[in-house]
Design a protein around this nucleic acid. Sequence first.
DNA 1: CGGTCTCTTGACGGAGTTCAAAGCTAGTGG
DNA 2: CCACTAGCTTTGAACTCCGTCAAGAGACCG
Lengths: 197, 197
Amino acid sequence: MNPGHENLHRFMNKTVRFTEADTGHLMALAKVVQLKKKEYLFREGEYARYVGYVNKGCLRYFHTDPKGEEHIIYFAQENWWIGDLDSFYSRKPTPYNLQALEPCELFAFSVETFDRLRSEVPAYEEFRKLAHARATAARLETMLSQRRQTAEERYLALLKKFPDIFQRVPQHYIASYLGIKPQSLSRIRKQLSDGSR
Amino acid sequence: MNPGHENLHRFMNKTVRFTEADTGHLMALAKVVQLKKKEYLFREGEYARYVGYVNKGCLRYFHTDPKGEEHIIYFAQENWWIGDLDSFYSRKPTPYNLQALEPCELFAFSVETFDRLRSEVPAYEEFRKLAHARATAARLETMLSQRRQTAEERYLALLKKFPDIFQRVPQHYIASYLGIKPQSLSRIRKQLSDGSR
DNA sequence: CGGTCTCTTGACGGAGTTCAAAGCTAGTGG
DNA sequence: CCACTAGCTTTGAACTCCGTCAAGAGACCG
């Protein structure tokens, strides 16, 4: 297997029993997509025609509100599954944007290939079920952390969980992800560095 | 069909093509659960053994944070599906509580019956896929509304979307759902009634 | 090298919290 | 059926966190 396939295989195997043949099937149906920096897999108003696995690179998933403010929901890195399932399955326009922050390589799947996978690779259906449940749980967890933690606590938690994000992503995007303004993040960082000195 | 079955049938048919026989299958596997006011379907730390459809009554789904504060994530009413899928499928303890606010009647399903449904009622698998996608989208929507709207805007939106909730649920629970303290909700209400007079 | 995008810093303001107390309501048991 | 209590709601005052407006410094790219 080439390195990309191997990553995917290892990743799938963490959740369900997945044979190399299963991974072969999956990759046979995948469309390999290269995104340049700042390119979009989809933008709000479009149909999210693909769901994808991130083999290389880093992206942001975000929404633009009526006042024109961007809200970053998550950063996707290697070994993440990305997309808007609601738009994908229901074939309705997505309100979200998925943009590359670096050159990216994705393995993309259309609804049609997804449905073929269901019959051809039963383990995949099982994976999907578990992955969806986990995704919903993760989204809930994020929502709750916004309620009960201060911005500083959320910043420190992010620093702990994804330390590499800070090397890959400009600071004002981090602020947007944390749900605060860039100025506030700057102040929080200053206060933390003052305090530790 | 009895009235409960008919509600369920109508509800399923809104999302996917669902025959009366399908509904029959579903109900044959359901366990009818009655909850008294203040009783729990599950509490944090337990395994969420059931997923359920609310036939009658009203419940709250909430989390208790390390500081002992309760955060209500949603109120479930008639025709809602409820449960913690992550705990349910992955058989790990749930961090959430599901409590009846009134006497309730649920149609409950265990993981085992769920897996039987998959082979016996293909339309159900399709429903589940779509329902999960919508649930995730709804959770995201809630999270974003917390970021970009003030508490007053969220209050007014709730009033518009679920006017009956205010008759069924004490005000401090509404506050918890909105992500604010009861005092703040009281003040918001006062200001709105002063302004409109 | 110039322009745009990003980060920092300061002063002020507003939304919501905290602490505290008092009034109200509904459920319970005698 | 009334009295009592526990829980719910309201109100006030002080405070905190973060947003807004504004300006300047630094970094990156063509």
